[in-house]
């Protein structure tokens, strides 16, 4: 038996919305430690990784590890039947082929239940090596979204160059070029607006804006996003879902390299 209750159902809706354009079908793995998911996009250029620790949930029970094979578009459609304020409980029997979704209004006056068919999905799990990144930029997630959107007007590839006191996003396209520099800024009174740079050595890498734009669908999950980079390895964009329990949504993106 698996049962997990999201006290704030809106978080689950945001998580699914932040994954569904990148990944069509996926296995959500449930175990005694929590819920997790790892899936690549169809072109195998990016990967989305979700970790929700059991302590994140209002209540969590998982007697036996199970994989829930889900079509994220269908999942998202059913979740649209929930109200923003609802608590959402997911339930599945061991060896069952349906996922039960229960939506409860705040005052408990309305309870709805839906069943969704589960699928058998062959998923390839990739081993992600533990990496000490040379540069980690933490910035307001809305700022990252805006930069990706603005630079996407000019071109399709962004250069991200990180130095001690700032990070530069630059783009060149048919109609011209542009760049945005974000300087280190520790807004002590508003930590959500801070830009922090942890640097071991300067790093400069290029990435496809199309994927970064899909990653920014997670903006509503966290006020801050972090970008971790090292030379010649995939970028990690992380949105913390819950700081206390180390629950997160992470995206990995392979760099573009000069031929």
């Amino acid at each position: 038996m698996f049962e997990a209750r999201f006290e704030t159902g809106e978080t689950l809706i945001k998580i699914v919305d932040a994954m569904k354009e990148l990944v069509e079908d996926c296995n959500i793995d449930c175990s005694t430690t929590g819920m997790s998911m790892q899936a690549m996009d169809q072109s195998h250029v990016s990967l989305v990784a979700l970790m929700l620790q059991k302590e994140f949930f209002g209540s969590f029970r998982c007697d036996r590890s199970i994989s829930l094979g889900l079509n994220l578009l269908s999942f998202s459609k059913i979740l649209k039947c929930a109200s923003k304020e609802d608590a959402i409980t997911l339930k599945a029997e061991d060896g069952g082929d349906v996922l039960t979704l229960m939506f409860e209004s705040k005052d408990g006056s309305r309870v709805s239940e839906f069943e969704m068919k589960l699928m058998d999905i062959d998923s390839e799990h990739l081993g992600i090596p533990e990496t000490e990144y040379k540069a980690v930029v933490t910035m307001p997630s809305g700022e990252f979204q805006r930069i990706v959107r603005d630079l996407g007007i000019i071109g399709d590839t962004v250069g991200i160059g990180c130095e001690k006191d700032g990070v530069r996003f630059s783009v060149t396209g048919d109609l011209g070029s542009g760049n945005v520099v974000l300087k280190q800024n520790t807004s002590a009174d508003k930590p959500d607006l801070a830009t922090l740079i942890e640097l071991e050595e300067p790093v400069e890498l290029s990435f496809a804006l199309r994927y970064l734009s899909l990653f920014t669908k997670a903006t509503g999950l966290s006020p801050q996003a972090s970008l971790s980079m090292s030379p010649e390895v995939p970028l990690v964009v992380e949105y913390k879902i819950d700081d206390e329990t180390a629950s997160y949504l992470r995206y990995y993106l392979a760099p573009k390299v000069d031929e």
């Binding site: 195998h44 250029v45 995939p234």
Partner: peptide
């Protein structure tokens, strides 16, 4: 021109 790398070039099968 820059070439898009695939993730499999960095992350192996576990």
């Amino acid at each position: 021109p820059r070439k898009q790398r695939k993730l499999g070039q960095f992350f192996g099968a576990p």
